[in-house]
Simulated scan of single mutants.
Amino acid sequence: MAPPISRGTAAWKYFGDFRAALLAGQVLLLQVAHPVVAAGVRDHSDYTEDPWTRLMQTGASLSVYIYGGPAGARYEASRLRELHRKFAGVDASGRRYSALNPEAYAWVHATLVKVPVDAQRFFGRGLSGPELDEYYAQMCDVGRMLGVRERDLPPDWAAFERYYDAMVAGFESNGTIETLLETIRTVKKPGWIPGFAWKYLQRWQHTAQMFVIRGALPAGFRDRLGLQWTARDAVRFARFCRVMRVFGVVPAPVRTVHMRWIGQLNVWLRAHPKLHARLVKGS
């Protein structure tokens, strides 16, 4: 049985590490590689119009599960399931879909389980065997809270990796992936950045994001998407990872402080619904 998520446990130490944000593009791309998720995002998401707000809302929601306490996590899980009940339609093959399709729902959770582990593998020292066991057990508890079926939660980390690799091996490119890659290239500026500065920053953010996405994606899937990756790119990515490992000297409470604050703030706002509604409306 997993210990509760609390200060010093594996999920608490690693889930909110700021370096995991570097893999945001990669994890979103892997999520929409699933055909049901792709159809739902295509039909019901406004991320192409305002990706920055959508990214912040996603981060705020994720923070509650790990750093918002059990009551906050239960509330957020219930809210998300209720929100997704209305997301349904017809996918690219003409079949009806629901955002609560059990396999697709489990896959989205799986990508969120994997990304902190990948962040430590690329940019940190990696999780030890006991840490992986504890982390995975804690994230299975989160999955159950979210409503992921027990049979869709592999029993241990080794089984989870086999499941994850098998899912990725079955994915191909789709229209939603193409839209996502185009959105990264043409993304509108955040409101607080001056227009003259964004003219230069937009190209930089596209180059940087695509470099990390290409470096972090599973090699076979990257090839199927037609994303070029050379030996020189591999050397540059390894060098980038070494630089990011320098931040490993920063204590875990400091590396995760932004996610803890966001999670606790969200729980406080849920307890003050009028203020929360006013802030959401204002955004």
Results as ranks from 00 to 15, higher is better:
residue 181 L to D: 00
residue 206 H to N: 13
residue 200 Y to I: 12
residue 133 D to K: 11
residue 224 R to F: 01
residue 44 H to R: 10
residue 33 A to N: 01
residue 180 L to T: 08
residue 234 A to Y: 03
residue 12 W to F: 10
residue 184 I to F: 15
residue 89 G to R: 07
residue 75 Y to V: 11
residue 160 F to G: 06
residue 97 Y to C: 01
residue 64 V to D: 01
residue 259 M to C: 07
residue 30 L to R: 10
residue 282 G to P: 01
residue 96 R to P: 06
residue 4 P to A: 15
residue 115 V to L: 12
residue 259 M to R: 12
residue 150 E to F: 09
residue 28 L to S: 06
residue 216 A to Y: 04
residue 207 T to I: 09
residue 16 G to Q: 09
residue 269 L to T: 02
residue 38 A to P: 02
residue 33 A to R: 00
residue 146 L to H: 00
residue 60 A to C: 03
residue 196 F to L: 12
residue 82 E to C: 03
residue 183 T to R: 08
residue 185 R to E: 11
residue 198 W to Y: 10
residue 132 L to T: 08
residue 80 L to A: 10
residue 105 Y to S: 03
residue 54 R to Q: 13
residue 247 F to V: 09
residue 252 A to T: 04
residue 263 G to V: 03
residue 255 R to E: 04
residue 150 E to A: 15
residue 123 F to I: 05
residue 17 D to Y: 05
residue 56 M to D: 13
residue 257 V to M: 10
residue 149 R to L: 15
residue 187 V to Y: 00
residue 44 H to F: 09
residue 197 A to P: 02
residue 258 H to E: 09
residue 126 G to R: 08
residue 63 S to M: 08
residue 209 Q to D: 04
residue 86 K to F: 06
residue 174 N to E: 07
residue 266 N to S: 09
residue 73 A to R: 05
residue 199 K to H: 07
residue 26 Q to H: 11
residue 279 L to R: 10
residue 71 A to D: 13
residue 274 K to S: 10
residue 104 A to K: 08
residue 123 F to R: 07
residue 143 G to Q: 09
residue 66 I to D: 07
residue 210 M to I: 15
residue 146 L to A: 04
residue 206 H to Q: 12
residue 125 R to D: 14
residue 141 D to Q: 14
residue 247 F to M: 12
residue 3 P to H: 08
residue 90 V to A: 04
residue 174 N to H: 06
residue 11 A to M: 02
residue 109 H to N: 08
residue 261 W to L: 13
residue 148 V to K: 05
residue 214 R to K: 15
residue 162 R to G: 09
residue 93 S to W: 08
residue 173 S to W: 01
residue 58 T to Y: 06
residue 217 L to V: 03
residue 274 K to C: 01
residue 131 E to L: 03
residue 57 Q to D: 12
residue 98 S to E: 13
residue 39 A to S: 07
residue 276 H to T: 05
residue 50 D to P: 02
residue 140 C to F: 00
residue 256 T to C: 11
residue 6 S to F: 05
residue 226 G to L: 03
residue 49 E to K: 11
residue 162 R to S: 13
residue 144 R to K: 12
residue 267 V to W: 01
residue 224 R to C: 00
residue 62 L to A: 14
residue 249 V to Y: 07
residue 195 G to F: 01
residue 239 R to Q: 11
residue 190 P to K: 05
residue 55 L to F: 12
residue 249 V to D: 00
residue 2 A to V: 11
residue 246 V to S: 02
residue 18 F to H: 11
residue 262 I to V: 14
residue 2 A to E: 04
residue 240 F to P: 06
residue 6 S to R: 15
residue 9 T to S: 15
residue 121 R to A: 13
